[in-house]
Design a protein around this nucleic acid. Structure first.
Length: 728
RNA sequence: GCGCGCUUAGCUCAGUGGUAGAGCGACCCUUUGACGUAGGGUAGGCCGGGGGUUCAAUCCCCUCAGCGCGCACCA
């Protein structure tokens, strides 16, 4: 209010309700134009670096609610730290997402009546690349819509040549250090996707299946898979089992469904004398445990199931049958032959399935590339125990250590085209040296790790390229240092190690653990000092969102309907780390009202204050209000520093609405309408000061509406809110 | 089987060793003065059951139950 009692003139925009749809894109354009997403352009270059590497979204579809959560939290941290004077770098990226994307693309092909099998692999690769790049740019637009203040000039894609180069260098070094080996081991094979999968890419499911007790000569063996009997190469008993001791080292012979069988009897601790009959049939080719037994006793393996899950020509009349059919048929035959001693129909056990198609995985023995994990895991364990990496929520540390302690070697080969090719080459035929070059032929390497095609120095033969690609997580596991240009890049020196890794709790093993291990291995340093894990976003009823349930909520749609600020606020408040968060429309709508409330609060303040007035002597009421405000600032700051964003957001919301609007503004009406000029000046100053203060505090939570208001303020300490100073 | 988490208002969730909190929803009142996308108010909870520690437990410990999740090679 001016001295004569009339209202200050205010920007016209405040005469209408806040319109996020019109304001948000304009604000994002303003930020991009100023260039402050790039920390090198910040006005103050004296601050400490503060880095978050964005978990690169899979470039194979639209952003989902989980992405919106990470954008919300990471952008909050970045904006907060930027306002604190740090040189904040948020490095965006996109993941080619090997297997995931190939699966998505296969579905697309299926719809078009095509199939990847039989397609020229170069052609397929090119098609998926086009598809991925289109999705990548689509997704970048969506990140902008969500307000991500990331440095687009540093954006990385997992297939960028420099990233691939780093991945190759790591593989080569692991190989030289003896931490990578090619081995024929029992691996998880998906008969639909025609590739092997790592342990993490399997899900186990409890099932009730018949347990068949089969007469094997003098023994009875129990199995759920009679169809694998043609691949049996031994039977095993426990070394101390008195019932069978005299058989150890001998052979049993009997007539099977396709002819005579002759199997050695081996003794192995693996056998539990209490289970079944205490005799186990050993099928090394199709059971990982049996494979381990076979390794200990150097037993051969006979593959009786092929890559499509059909019985091979080693199975006589059963050849060509699918596993399920063969199981029944073999069991029937055994029964007719009097070989089926009994069947337990209620046998409960677990089967491993492909995490994508949920088909039962077939264990097969195939040559694959493995990374020896124990030495890598040990270093990670030490670093975590020394708190070089801390977890929010804390209990994830226990979960991580437990996993690291029980880690298995990691199969990094995939039999798919979409991915980074494994840079391995094989000497196809036995090396027959050219005349005069026989001398050191013993040094001829059968396997060479190299980006370029090697040629044999002894026989001039060209090496054959490995056709497999890397598990996507092998490259994403190197993301923090690969994106920053390890080892010589300027950014690497400046921004590594990073401060926070914020991602979904469900990929803690897939990604977080591997980044810690590979980061330590290559750079000697943990790649980040804090891990913040958010929970899965569910529908209101706590159900996981899925297309089949039809309860998927698109964050982009909510953003278009209620504004991104409302969406972000809804994803912040009530979202504690590590627990699931329900996302539903009513909640988001409530925060749209809040954005509008802020808008109207500003209108009131501008109409009733002189923004350029100096701070007067404060009336007692305002000194108390100022203390209250400052307490709130301290509280909110502490909450953010301690990663309690949900608390900070709620306190701000509560202050602005229920303290500032409901109490301060209401009591101001009588003060400003009264006759005490001193009290009026004091209150006017406080109103404007408080507005400036909570706009700053709210900026990391609701960047758009706060910036939009800021742009219309007559007097402020910075032309853009995003680089203004955080209140003390 | 082992491990982890959760259980607080109708719903979604915070929280604290000392007569319980938010948002949404419900009900009632308010209609020119920042905002009706609003304001004011009311109701609603043996803080999952049982036991223990304590002067005092929703909170710490033990135990049970229900729900959810992770890990696991018994054929």
């Amino acid at each position: 209010m001016q001295k004569d009692g009339s209202k200050q003139s205010i920007p016209e925009a405040f005469l209408k309700p806040y319109d996020p749809i019109a304001e948000e894109p304009a604000m994002y354009a303003l930020w991009e134009e100023r260039g402050y997403f790039n920390p090198d352009n910040l006005p103050d270059q004296s601050g400490e670096p503060y880095t978050i590497i964005m978990p690169p979204p899979n470039a194979n579809g639209s952003l989902h609610a989980g992405h919106a959560v990470f954008v919300t939290i990471e952008d909050l941290l970045i904006r907060y730290n930027r306002m604190k004077g740090k040189r904040a770098l948020w490095l965006p990226g996109a993941d080619h997402a090997g297997f995931e994307t190939q699966v998505v693309y296969e579905k697309k092909l299926e719809k078009e009546g095509r199939t990847r099998f039989g397609m020229d692999s170069e052609q397929l690769r090119k098609e998926i690349l086009d598809f991925t790049l289109a999705n990548k740019s689509f997704m970048e637009g969506q990140l902008r819509q969500l307000g991500a203040s990331c440095d687009w000039s540093r954006e990385k894609f997992t297939l960028d040549p420099d990233v691939v180069k780093t991945v190759y260098a790591t593989f080569e070094q692991l190989y030289k250090d003896g931490l990578v080996y090619r081995g024929s081991k029992s691996i998880n094979w998906c008969t639909k996707h025609q590739t092997s999968l790592s342990e993490l890419e399997t899900i186990s499911e409890e099932r009730i299946d018949p347990l068949y007790y089969m007469q094997y000569g003098p023994f009875v063996v129990a199995t759920v898979r009679p169809e694998t009997m043609f691949g049996d190469t031994a039977v095993a008993v426990h070394p101390e089992d008195a019932r069978y001791k005299q058989w150890i080292g001998k052979e049993i012979e009997f007539e099977g469904p396709i002819g005579p069988m002759k199997l050695p009897v081996v003794a192995d601790e693996y056998v539990d004398p209490e289970f079944g009959t205490g005799v186990v049939k050993i099928t090394p080719a199709h059971d990982p445990n049996d494979f381990a037994v076979a390794q200990r006793h150097t037993l051969p393996a006979i593959a009786v199931i092929d890559q499509y899950g059909k019985l091979t020509n080693k199975t006589g009349k059963f050849a060509g049958m699918k596993v399920e059919e063969a199981r029944k048929t073999v069991a029937d035959d055994l029964e007719k032959m009097g070989m089926l001693a009994k069947v337990d129909r209620e046998y409960k056990h677990a089967v491993k399935k492909c995490y994508k198609c949920e088909r039962v995985l077939e264990p097969r023995i195939l040559p694959q590339w493995f990374v020896k994990m124990k030495p890598l895991a040990e270093r990670a364990r030490e670093a975590i125990s020394r708190d070089e990496v801390v977890f929010y929520p804390e209990h994830y540390e226990k979960i991580m250590l437990h996993w690291l302690d029980n880690i298995e070697d990691w199969n990094v080969s995939r039999q798919i085209v979409w991915g980074i090719p494994i840079p391995a080459w094989y000497h196809e035929l036995k090396c027959i040296p050219k005349p005069g070059r026989e001398a050191d032929v013993s040094t001829c390497e059968e396997v060479v790790i190299s980006v370029e095609k090697p040629v044999c120095a002894f026989c001039d033969a060209e090496y054959l390229r490995d056709t497999d690609t890397f598990d996507t997580w092998f490259s994403s596991g190197q993301w923090p240092f690969a994106t920053l240009g390890y080892p010589n890049g300027k950014d690497f020196k400046k921004f590594y190690p990073t401060q926070v890794m914020e991602t979904a709790g469900e990929i803690i093993f897939f990604w977080v653990a591997r980044m810690i291990m590979l980061g330590l291995y290559r750079t000697g340093t943990v790649p980040f000092s804090t891990v913040y894990l958010h929970g899965i976003v569910t529908a209101k009823d706590g159900q996981k969102m899925s297309k089949s349930k039809g309860n998927v909520i698109s964050p982009l749609e909510l953003s278009e309907k209620y504004g991104t600020d409302a969406l972000r606020m809804g994803l912040t408040i009530g979202n504690t780390p590590g627990t699931t968060t329900a996302l539903y429309e009513e909640k988001i709508r409530a925060y749209k009202l809040f954005a509008n409330k802020l808008w109207n609060i500003t209108r009131f303040v501008l109409e009733n204050t002189d923004a350029s007035a100096d701070r007067p002597e404060l009336a007692e009421a305002d000194a108390i209000r100022l203390n209250e405000l400052n307490d709130m600032v301290a509280d909110v700051t502490r909450d953010i520093d301690e990663y309690r964003f949900y608390m900070a957001g709620e306190k701000l919301y509560h202050y602005v609405w229920h303290t500032f609007a409901d109490l301060v503004i209401e009591e101001s009406k009588s003060i400003l309408g009264g006759s005490d000029a001193t009290a009026q000046a004091s209150r006017q100053w406080f109103l404007y000061h408080a507005l400036i203060t909570f706009l700053k505090l709210l900026h990391p939570f609701m960047p758009f509406v706060t910036e939009s208001i800021w742009q219309k303020l007559p007097n402020k300490d910075s032309d853009v809110l995003m680089v203004s100073k955080w209140p003390q």
